[in-house]
Design a binder for these strands. Sequence first.
RNA 1: CGGGGUGUAGCGCAGCUUGGUUAGCGCGCUUGACUGGGGGUCAAGAGGUCGGGGGUUCGAAUCCCCCCACCCCGACCA
Length: 608
Amino acid sequence: MTTGTTKKAVVSSVRSGVCHRWSKSLIPTTREAPNDAETPSHILLHRAGYIRQVGAGIYDYLPLAHRVLNKVGDIVREEMDAAGATELLMPALEPFELFEGTKRHEDYGANLFRLEDRKGRLNALAPTHEEVITHLMMGSVSSYKQLPLNLYQVQTKFRDEARPRAGLLRCREFIMKDAYSFHMHVEGPGGLNEAYDAMYRAYTNIFTRCGLDFTAVEAESGPIGGSASHEFMVNCASGEDTILKCPVSGYAANVEKCETGERPKGTLQEPPTGEWTEVHTPNLPGITEVGKAMGVKPERMLKTIVFSVDEGEGKSFKWIIATVRGDHDVNEGKVKTLAGVKKIAMADEKAARAAGFAIGYVSPKCVNAVPGTLLLIDADASHGGFWATGADKADYHAKHFNWRRDVGAALDDSGRVKVGDVRNALEGDPSPRAAGSKLVTGRGIEVGHIFKLGTKYSDAMGFAILDATQQKKSVIMGCYGIGVSRTMAASVEQNNDANGICWPAPIAPYHVLITLMKPEDPKQQEIAGKISCELVGKGIDVLIDDRDERAGVKFKDADLIGLPIRLTLGDKALEQGGVEYKTRRDTGKGEVVPIADVTAKCLAAING
RNA sequence: CGGGGUGUAGCGCAGCUUGGUUAGCGCGCUUGACUGGGGGUCAAGAGGUCGGGGGUUCGAAUCCCCCCACCCCGACCA
């Protein structure tokens, strides 16, 4: 997304750089990656000596990684501060009583790390800090005059992920920046929307400054509704998340949220293609296998999913069945919207069976067979022609399903059957924002997520204060997260080549690597000292490779660790009164630059 | 949680099918020599509870049982 990002110099002489020696650091590069590393960032961060695995989803951050994390953290802090937020630090250890109001330990379930202390009291390792900060605020803020406030921290988070994977991209312990804002109202000065917009801009600045190619996408709406949540996705083919974009309007959303333009609906009046014919299809795990067994392509099958409706909704139906084409996926959010209900859940298998649904073999006919059922038909599934479907009894599917013949009069009752959009958006779907434009898909790594919480937590925990009119009001909240360690990994996913990492200058652990061909040579030592002194004075961070290694080893390692600029001090260039200058992305051998010009050239390249 | 896979030296692997000297190889590491601008050569070394426990057997890295760890796919994921 493009916004008015201010171009910032990466370094300046206001703050000195640092100069470290390779021999005094711990940079254990390896020729080979561990066999269980498959993702580029995992392989390269390991091989280049940035990380080591301790356990599943648990990593050491070695000195180089620590410096990158600090650089990302510095950028985050600058932009958060500039956006009016203030840093604090909360504990990672959290007494379980804090969850009493929000019941989030139930939502998190096994993902929450639990531990008992010596007194037998239950504690959690915090997965995020809504409860902790709300608790803090309840004890510290008693007047509307103290709001708005936006507080943040950069801290280690813990989530017992069912499946940690891909190195730093999905960990059980990771570094996160989390911010929480507090307001008396949503609109206008000091309101939630203002803070949210400021965070949107700050995040855009942060990821731009980190040198990432990213997309801000609309994500699932919060309790307030509207476009209440955005995810910041690093564009990357290996990303876990699917995003969709409209090339004309710029609309972008994740697959859970993405709307589509109007798709053509069928009339539900077409004649049958043949007799209802049942086929024995036992023990087949998915629609693909069922299709194979029946000799039917998934796009000619109907997939019917059963949802239960919360009793509190007060609706005439307690079940919703949603029918989509076999090659499509039901979207729960769209089901809710089309049905006009706020809360649904995938049907409990036992309860659904008891009601008469043959789970795994459900057909749209259940709208008639099971009382209190609303049928939602996706537009793409509402056409005529041949359909195969579940046969409403265990181990059987059926061919030649026909809407009019097999569902009948219910189709004409809009209280029992609705046709609309209930599936996930796909590549090629019509854009919801620009007529004639089609959605394109991409993959992304979620590095940031901003969210309008509303009063979800303040209500649950009883955080309400008097406003100017002496009305007691629940405090309105927003929360804003950035995966700092994930951002580091995502950057490597985007910035590497066959030889190693290619850091963007703003988050590189050092800007310049000085490679001494003969580290014991006093002349090379002297020149390295002089150049590094000058560079440091300009705010540039320098690493000197002073190891007694062969040239080939040093060059290979230099490419691997990926610093933006390499200066080589060797006889060849020194005889010409210069040093060899090469940027990481430059594939050639570099150029000889007079010693007097080196600092200016580095500075220009780094800030360029 | 379901499916698949892997555990042998710091890293990458062979050996296991068909049990049998002292468990091998490459990289890395140590020492020495030669070398010296893209992971150099030669020589001599160090380094192992064969993931753990139990069992079968005269004898187990190898066969059997249980457990653990890690990876991949899926489910899940404020």
